[in-house]
């Protein structure tokens, strides 16, 4: 018999994520997948799950979950307040839940995303070769009373279970984060003054951030016009006619018509994965 969990309360924005959808961008299908990839991968290693196993991506305030069978699990990503029944659980601490025990995941802080990785991985339906939630291809988020089946656990059968647990916490820089970026295809179209402003300003993340994109609060002075619709990727920084910088994230569309002024490096996207509203950043050309 395979195990299962039941969602008693879904939390603010909880989704199933894996490595994402590859091979469908030419049909306009976004990549999706876990935003803090490092946290998801470490969690799967700690559980000795096959690479690419699906986990729960939890945003800001977590869900309440009942284990329907005895199961190992671990939390990774941002630090979070969480309890298994009444016992506090730390990020990076591999724990065992008995059948009917309840995991309450509360407030995430100082980051914005925590991952619940369960031995055997989540076995939700694969759509276009991935379990990652992306509406309308799948449901948008987990819902109350949803039951999720688990795969067969390999926990404790390999040396990988000895990954140091402190690493499971994704750190968050205090103060201004320096984000390594490359010049985007339309960077050259910016004026010298715009480039200076772009590279010397300390920007902050606005309230508009989600899995699709992060908007920067401080507008740039901008006269650049829209471009002919062109390919974009997670990490592409678009500049809208009103001067707003939009950093595209995993659920972004495959093409766009705003000038692509920067391209955030993979390392930069990892840094941004835990940064929510009000956090400060500075671009640094690689």
């Amino acid at each position: 018999m395979s195990g299962a969990i039941t969602i008693l309360q879904p939390g603010i924005y909880t989704t199933v994520q894996d490595e994402g959808r590859r091979g469908y961008a030419h049909l306009g299908v976004p990549e999706s997948g876990a935003i803090d990839k490092r946290a998801m991968r470490l969690g799967n290693q700690l559980m000795n799950n096959p690479e690419g196993s699906a986990v729960l991506e939890i945003t800001l305030v977590g869900p309440t979950i009942r284990f329907e069978s005895g199961t190992h699990f671990v939390l990774t990503g941002s630090q979070v307040t969480a309890f298994l029944d009444e016992v506090a659980i730390d990020v990076g601490e591999t724990a065992f839940a008995k059948a009917n025990q309840i995991l309450s995941i509360k407030k995430i802080h100082p980051g914005i995303r925590t991952y619940l990785c369960i031995a055997g991985g989540l076995q939700t339906e694969k759509v276009l070769n991935s379990r990652s939630y992306y509406a309308p291809l799948t449901q948008a988020t987990v819902v109350k009373n949803q039951q999720i089946t688990l795969g067969k656990s390999n926990y404790g059968t390999s040396k990988f279970t000895k990954v140091r647990s402190q690493k499971a916490v994704t750190g968050l820089k205090i103060g201004v984060a320096t984000i390594p970026v490359f010049r985007g295809p339309e960077y050259e179209a910016l004026t010298t003054a715009q480039r200076e402003e772009l590279l010397n300003t300390i920007f902050s993340i606005s309230k508009n951030w989600n899995r699709m994109a992060i908007q920067i609060l401080e507008p740039l002075d901008n006269k650049l016009k829209a471009i002919r619709t062109s390919p974009v990727l997670p990490g592409t920084v678009q500049l809208t006619p009103s001067g707003t910088q939009i950093i595209l994230c995993n659920d972004c569309q495959t093409t766009g018509g705003y000038p692509r002024i920067l391209q955030v490096s993979k390392k930069g996207m990892q840094l941004l994965s835990q940064m929510g509203a009000g956090k400060s950043l500075k671009w640094e050309l690689v």
Partner: peptide, 11 residues
């Protein structure tokens, strides 16, 4: 020309 913007959207 191509498919983009949303899954299955034709340009």
């Amino acid at each position: 020309y191509f498919i983009g913007f949303l899954p299955g959207f034709l340009y």
